[in-house]
Simulated scan of single mutants.
Amino acid sequence: MGLYTGLRWGELAGLHSHRVDRRRSRLFVVEVNTKSGIKEYP
């Protein structure tokens, strides 16, 4: 999915299935995975 969306590794790792809107073909990046854990996207 990363190749098609252009998301960074931390954004992909923080992505949850309930943040994917398949009906509208949209992803909502709300959290990112960092070295210190999952944080809110700036």
Rank of each mutant, 00 (worst) to 15 (best):
R19Q: 12
G14W: 12
L12C: 14
R24T: 05
S17G: 00
L15Q: 02
G14I: 07
D21F: 06
K39A: 05
V30F: 04
D21L: 04
L27V: 02
S25C: 01
E11W: 08
L15I: 06
P42V: 08
G6L: 09
V30Q: 07
S36P: 00
I38V: 08
R23S: 11
S36G: 07
R22W: 13
L27D: 04
H16P: 00
S17N: 09
F28E: 03
S25M: 03
Y41W: 13
L12H: 11
Y41C: 02
V20F: 08
G10D: 13
T34S: 06
G6C: 09
D21V: 05
S17P: 00
L7W: 05
R8T: 15
E31S: 06
M1S: 14
L7T: 14
E11P: 08
G14N: 10
E31V: 05
Y4N: 13
S36D: 15
H16T: 11
E40A: 03
G6W: 14
W9S: 13
V30D: 12
R8N: 12
R23H: 10
R8C: 13
G10N: 11
R19A: 05
I38F: 04
V30N: 04
T5H: 02
S17R: 11
I38S: 02
P42K: 12
R26N: 05
V29T: 06
G2Q: 15
T34F: 08
S36V: 09
G6T: 12
F28T: 06
G10C: 05
T34K: 08
G10P: 11
R23G: 10
T5L: 01
R8V: 07
V30S: 01
H18L: 12
Y41Q: 10
R23P: 00
E11I: 03
G10T: 12
G6E: 15
L7N: 11
R22C: 03
G6A: 08
F28S: 03
L12N: 11
A13L: 13
L27Y: 07
R26M: 07
G37Q: 02
R26T: 02
H18Y: 13
V29A: 03
H16C: 07
T5R: 06
E31L: 02
G37I: 02
S17I: 12
A13F: 07
R23T: 12
S36A: 08
R24I: 01
Y41S: 06
T34Y: 10
I38G: 03
G14E: 12
G37N: 02
L27E: 03
L15W: 00
G2D: 15
S25N: 07
N33F: 10
S25K: 05
L7D: 14
L3E: 12
L27P: 04
Y4F: 15
A13W: 05
R19K: 02
N33C: 07
E11Q: 08
A13V: 13
M1E: 15
L27G: 07
R24K: 03
G14C: 10
E31N: 00
D21Q: 05
H16G: 03
R19Y: 04
V29D: 08
L3A: 01
R26F: 01
K39W: 04
H16A: 07
V20W: 10
G10Q: 09
S25Q: 06
V32I: 10
E11H: 00
H18E: 14
G6D: 15
L15R: 02
V29C: 03
M1W: 15
